[in-house]
Simulated scan of single mutants.
Amino acid sequence: MPPDSPTPRVAPWWVERAENLLSSKDERTLDLGSLWELFERFAFVQENVEPDLLLLDVQARPELQALWDAVEARAYSVTEALDAAGDDVVQQLRTGDLVAAGFRDRWEGLGFTEAAGRASTAADDWLDGLLRISRITTGQNRPPFGQVNMASRAQRISDFLSITSPGQHDTIYDLGCGNGKFAITVAASSAARVKGVEYGQEYVDSARRNGERFALRNLEFIHADVRDVDLSDGTAFYLYFPFWGEVAHAVARMLGDVARARDITVYASGPRHDYGEHFLEQVSQGALCLAPQRLDFADVMVLRSADASRRA
């Protein structure tokens, strides 16, 4: 290149992503899960291009304004298609055209194999698109001993349903339910009563709004410190590492007390240190017994009432 030639401008990082997005499949041909995957890709670009920097990009290369306008227009179209696909499923649930067993078959049948380059599965994309719940929710205050909300993976929800086989006489507690993916999915997939307990007000508000869309009579969200909730009617309890330390210790002790009074199943996922150890303490005290560990779910402890056989 001659010394007096101008230095080529490097395209902003978002340009290639935007061009790839605009060349993606027509949203009218995509199913719910594929629409969610495309929606998230558009959202990533829109949320990570700062307005001030975009203005500078356009000033340097005016033709980029048309590209950005096209991205926003297509993102709006994808959002509309996602809403329509989700509303169709919601309507089927509300009218009874889609029963619990059929709903479960629909998302489980999509499979749990992670897509290349994405920490997601077809079943998760379908559920997350239906519920409009991202896997990780940040930007909200965490209570002491609480965790950042992470939506449960579809395979874990499926495993819980297979282990507990909940029916109309069961009451399931999702302790630290966050935005409600597990609770809503289980309530729509079974006849059991499902209660989600959450300390964060914003999470509870979001979960309730989502739950109201489906008009599920077997679903309830409780805004409370889990230590203040009466869990005595529960038959199965789900915990996706929602808290640690003093709260985890108190909850494990509460579940131990319930296990001494009735037959329950506890599905607790998380590290052993400062979380799982509190449940294992209830095993050593004779309230719970621990099922054998499974390779596919190495971080999951399945615990049941130790006196179940005696009460049978």
Rank of each mutant, 00 (worst) to 15 (best):
P2K: 12
W14E: 00
E16A: 04
A18T: 10
L21A: 06
L22I: 03
D26T: 09
E27F: 06
R28Y: 04
D31N: 11
S34F: 02
L35Y: 05
F39V: 00
E40N: 13
A43C: 05
F44M: 12
E47G: 05
E47K: 13
Q59W: 11
R61F: 04
R61N: 12
L67I: 04
L67S: 05
A73H: 03
A73I: 02
R74Q: 14
A75M: 11
Y76K: 08
S77K: 04
L82C: 01
G86L: 03
V90T: 10
Q92K: 12
L93T: 09
V99Y: 06
A100Y: 00
F103G: 06
F103Y: 09
D105N: 09
E108C: 06
G109K: 03
L110K: 10
L110C: 01
E114V: 14
S120T: 15
T121I: 12
D125T: 11
D128M: 07
R142V: 10
P143S: 09
S152A: 13
S152K: 05
R153A: 15
A154V: 11
I157Q: 03
T171L: 08
I172C: 04
N179V: 06
N179C: 05
T185G: 12
A192F: 02
K195C: 04
G200K: 13
Q201P: 01
Q201W: 11
V204K: 02
D205I: 10
S206F: 08
A207D: 06
R213W: 00
L216A: 13
L219V: 12
H223I: 11
H223W: 09
S232L: 03
D233H: 11
D233Y: 08
G234D: 08
F243K: 06
W244G: 01
W244S: 12
G245C: 07
E246T: 08
A248N: 07
A250F: 05
V251K: 01
A252G: 12
M254W: 00
L255C: 14
V258E: 04
V258G: 13
A259Y: 14
A259D: 08
R260Y: 13
V266D: 01
V266T: 11
Y267N: 12
G270Y: 02
D274G: 09
Y275W: 13
L280G: 02
L280N: 12
E281D: 15
S284F: 14
A287S: 15
A287P: 15
D296P: 05
L303A: 02
R304P: 00
R310L: 14
R310A: 13
